[in-house]
């Protein structure tokens, strides 16, 4: 292509077709080049914005449209007659009804508590692990790290049945041998049955994130902290973690979002879909559907309500997350 154009340069410009002229212009003219790049950027940005924001728009449309109109299924625009999802009515009451029909705030609370507790556990444990893997050299470091990686490759569903069995309070029995190991407490319908598996599942990712960050803190700073009067643990909390704030924030936010949105484990560990059994947010959204009717507008409104805490969190922590995901080495 380039050589072709180069050959063309020699010949008379008027002989070129419009496309060739344009490519020629882009190749030779800096300004045209800039314009092309800007255009391409907007195309890509708009594509991503549409694919991510359109579902939200649809949720809003569904929430504002009365359920009967949704079920009517006529989405043609008033004048043009083109089929396009748009609000048919302005039924803001749906956002209030959400809380009247089921105690939706309790479901949100459940998910919030589960997410916060899991995040705290994960950050605490992953910090210790990240410190050890990132800053100390000891025999067996490689195999242990590989082991953690292997655990993170398991599909979570693989753990479900044995864990459910154990959390029901059945004795844990060694397979094939039949030896009874111990009888766990009955944890179903309690946060314990959800927080434990969540912590285990989300630990590996956090360990790897924090390991990378902690290993970049210069040894001198830790030594200085220890000479000044901290223990190794104190140096981790007072110096290494604050300096790795973007990494800690990234790990925390990723864990929080994942647990907040979790449905699979929690819905099974909560035997009935009621907030008293620690049913999560998604369980709450689905409870607007019963055997005979489905309140699509309420489900949509509940989804929007459920997203709001996440939205606030991301906006608040945005700067840290972005720098955490793209961080380079930290200077001393």
């Amino acid at each position: 292509m380039a050589t072709q154009t180069e050959q063309q340069t020699g010949s008379d410009e008027q002989n070129l077709g419009p496309l060739q002229q344009w490519t020629q212009g882009v190749l030779s003219d800096q300004e045209k080049q800039q314009r092309l790049y800007r255009a391409l950027f907007y195309v890509a940005a708009i594509f991503f914005l549409v694919t991510t924001l359109f579902p939200f728009y649809w949720l809003l449309v569904l929430a504002l449209t009365p359920n009967s109109a949704i079920l009517g299924g006529d989405w043609s625009l008033p004048v043009i007659g083109l089929e396009f999802p748009h609000p048919q009515g302005f039924n803001v009451v749906a956002f209030v009804e959400v809380f009247q029909q089921v105690p939706f705030h309790l479901y949100v609370f459940n998910s919030f508590v589960l997410a916060v507790t899991t995040t705290i556990i994960v950050i605490a444990v992953a910090s210790l692990a990240g410190y050890v893997f990132g800053r100390l050299d000891f025999p067996g470091r490689g195999p242990l790290l590989l082991g953690i990686l292997v655990v993170s490759y398991f599909p979570p569903a693989a753990f479900l049945i044995p864990l459910f069995d154990a959390f029901l309070g059945n004795a844990v029995v060694l397979p094939f041998v039949g030896i009874e190991l111990f009888e766990p407490p009955r944890l179903v319908n309690t946060p314990g049955a959800m927080i434990m598996p969540f912590s285990a599942l989300f630990l590996p990712l956090s360990i790897f994130i924090l390991m990378t960050f902690y290993s970049q803190i210069p040894d001198g700073l830790e030594d200085a902290a220890r000479v000044e009067g901290t223990t190794r643990l104190g140096a981790l909390v007072r110096v290494i973690m604050p300096l790795s704030a973007p990494g800690v924030a990234t790990a925390a936010v990723l864990t929080f979002i994942a647990v907040y949105n979790e449905y699979f484990f929690s819905e099974i560990m909560a035997l009935e879909n009621v907030p008293q059994n620690w049913s999560p947010l998604v369980g709450g959204i689905l409870s607007y559907q019963d055997q005979y009717t489905t309140d699509f507008n309420l489900m949509a409104a509940a989804s929007i309500v459920g997203v709001l805490p996440m939205l606030i969190l991301v906006i608040v922590a945005q700067e840290k997350i972005v720098s955490g995901l793209t961080a380079g080495a930290l200077k001393e």
Binding site: A224, A225, V227
Partner: peptide, 17 residues
């Protein structure tokens, strides 16, 4: 180190940033 009554100045200065 913290119980030895020593203080240290490091080559890379090592102030807490």
């Amino acid at each position: 180190p913290k119980d030895r009554g020593v203080a240290m100045v490091f080559q890379n200065i090592a102030l807490f940033p």
